[in-house]
Simulated scan of single mutants.
Amino acid sequence: MPESLTPELIKTAPKALLHDHLDGGLRPATILELSEQIGHELPADTVEGLGAWFAESADSGSLVRYLETFDHTIAVMQTAEGLARVARECVEDLAADGVVYAESRYAPEQHLAGGLSLDEVVTAVEDGIREGEALAAEAGRPIRVDTLVTAMRHAAKSREIAELAVRHRDAGVTGFDIAGAEAGFPPTRHLDAFEYLRRENFHFTIHAGEAFGLPSIWEAIQWCGAERLGHGVRIVDDLTLDGVPVTEIETPYADWSPEQVSAVQLGRLAAYVRDRRIPLEMCPSSNLQTGAAPSIAAHPITLLDRLRFRVTLNTDNRLMSGTSMSREMELLVAEAGWGLRHLRRVSVNAMKSAFLPFDQRLEIIENKIKPFYDD
């Protein structure tokens, strides 16, 4: 294995991405252009100024300002042309960053203001993704991108959105998700949707354990049957060291000794998650912005990886966090002591956990990921 993990090497590393929001990854230049076409007012009128506004708002610590950023991205995603362009550019940007497989998620119910139907929204996104895949292949950066259709947990459309996802399962939609505020909107409100998806043999993940704690994770798994956990960072609340919750220990997890890690005790829920190999879709930079973690060095992803939970590394919202898969890897290398073996493990974990047929997952692992890391 290469001894020095330079940014150039990390960028060429083949990556797998499971948790990336389509409406959180737009190019500022695209937002400016599309906003001008539809007459939508923005807080800045230059690419640099708009990019800076998104970064400042996302890092402000104000939930109101953070949510306002999505008002502007979603506003330019209300036409078939806008949706297709955003999807196409998403694929191109991921491919340029070394991503070989990705699942991009979005909520169709948020893209109806321009008169599109739910099915037309999905079709427009899939058209854009297929075009992006073709352009990436022509550029010598082949990538496979599937989509997850998301229902908003505060709304009452989850069953309708679940049926929408299943209708498009042979056109690129590979899974279902619920997203939005956890507190006050437990996943059990959407049991009808999850029961329907299981009857249809369809995959789904659930945002849980980000802003809310263990009860949200427990409901997502034990009541709803989630195959993966979106974020799941709060599973760390179920870990103790010498009877002390690990969250109360000030030493960053990156600095823990092997003896400390081996002495960590897992609560029953944490043990179940690890034993069942339930994937955790972790997003370090985003978790810092939302207060789910205090720093990269103290982010639970490092401790959970050392405890051999099935951890995956993700971007969440590339625009709002000013990030990419390469940047997330660079941060963990620089601030949490990760090496190539850690990057290999999360990449293989992601492909093992992808909502692809087994043979297709295996093909990407054996032919794209392992050759880079094992040579």
Rank of each mutant, 00 (worst) to 15 (best):
V236M: 07
D237S: 13
D238F: 07
L239Q: 04
T240G: 01
T240D: 03
L241R: 10
D242M: 08
G243I: 11
G243K: 10
V244F: 11
P245R: 04
V246I: 10
T247R: 15
T247N: 09
E250P: 14
E250I: 12
T251M: 15
T251A: 12
P252V: 01
P252E: 01
D255W: 12
W256R: 06
W256L: 01
S257D: 01
P258L: 08
Q260Y: 06
V261S: 02
S262W: 12
S262M: 13
V264Q: 03
V264P: 04
Q265W: 14
L266S: 11
G267T: 05
G267Y: 06
R268Q: 14
L269V: 06
A270R: 00
A270V: 04
A270K: 03
A270T: 00
A271N: 15
Y272E: 11
Y272Q: 11
Y272I: 14
Y272W: 14
V273A: 09
V273G: 00
R274G: 02
D275Q: 11
R277I: 13
R277V: 11
I278Y: 08
P279I: 03
P279H: 04
P279N: 00
L280Y: 06
L280G: 02
E281W: 08
S285L: 14
S286N: 04
Q289W: 12
Q289T: 13
T290E: 02
G291V: 04
A293S: 09
P294M: 07
P294F: 07
A297P: 06
H299K: 09
P300H: 05
I301K: 08
I301Y: 01
I301C: 09
T302G: 00
T302K: 08
L303K: 02
D305A: 14
L307V: 04
L307G: 01
R308F: 15
F309C: 06
F309K: 01
R310V: 15
R310F: 15
T312I: 07
T312F: 07
N314D: 06
N314S: 06
T315F: 07
T315C: 03
N317K: 11
R318C: 04
R318P: 03
L319M: 05
M320Y: 14
M320N: 13
G322H: 07
T323M: 04
M325Q: 13
R327S: 08
M329H: 15
M329L: 12
M329G: 11
L331N: 10
L332M: 10
V333C: 09
A334H: 13
E335K: 14
A336F: 11
G337W: 05
G337H: 05
G339R: 13
